[in-house]
């Protein structure tokens, strides 16, 4: 188990952790989830059929682990906030003022804004953005990980960028209005 772990760690750890981090947007949670990914992978390595590459398989496991966590959080949030949350959700997310991670805080305003607005994309769009841009994976690899057609990856990617553009412009306009009022 150790040797397998060493090999996987060397080959994929940084990318997997980064993928989980940007998915769940929390370092501690990402650290916890990456452990879960290794446990699942190491325990099911024997059953890996090789239908996809080892890399896309690992990403696929990480995707499921991350999405499971996100959905659990959504359900908890929903319970606490009641049905009203459903209607105000998008607004709530845009206004999310949770502290930025230190790595992002050190970046320029544009990066910080993109990081914030990324959360307004749909779950599918976020997945494509993370895999295509943050992880620099190919369309084929992304399709493999998400279980989609390449065509769907391209469409979702296009929509994601459009969504980001629209929401970034809205944020920009809001900031300009606030600035003008001052």
């Amino acid at each position: 188990m150790r040797s397998e772990f060493d090999r996987l760690y060397t080959a994929y750890h940084h990318q997997l952790f980064q993928y989980l981090f940007y998915m769940v947007r929390n370092r501690e949670v990402a650290e916890d989830l990456v452990q879960e990914v290794y446990i699942k992978v190491l325990h099911s390595f024997e059953t890996f059929e090789g239908k996809s590459s080892e890399k896309t398989w690992l990403y696929s496991v990480a995707k499921h682990v991350g999405i499971d966590w996100i959905r659990k959080q959504s359900r908890k949030k929903r319970k606490w906030e009641g049905k009203e949350y459903e209607w105000s959700e998008r607004e709530f997310e845009i206004k999310d003022q949770s502290p930025l991670p230190e790595e992002v805080l050190l970046q320029k305003d544009e990066v910080q804004q993109v990081y914030r607005v990324l959360k307004t994309c749909t779950e599918d769009q976020q997945q494509v953005v993370l895999l295509r841009y943050v992880q620099s994976l190919s369309i084929s690899e992304t399709a493999d990980i998400l279980g989609w057609t390449e065509s769907k990856v391209k469409t979702t990617q296009h929509r994601a960028i459009k969504t980001l553009q629209k929401n970034l412009e809205e944020v920009e306009e809001t900031l300009e209005v606030k600035e003008a009022k001052k």
Partner: peptide
């Protein structure tokens, strides 16, 4: 500023985030 190319470029340049757990700590936790 927010044209598609800029957005794509910014996304590609989102900062690298590294796991603070050491390899051994991680393995022990696993």
């Amino acid at each position: 500023k927010w044209n598609e190319k800029d957005i794509e470029k910014t996304l590609s340049n989102l900062p690298s985030v590294k796991d603070k757990q050491s390899k051994d700590e991680l393995f022990q936790a696993i």
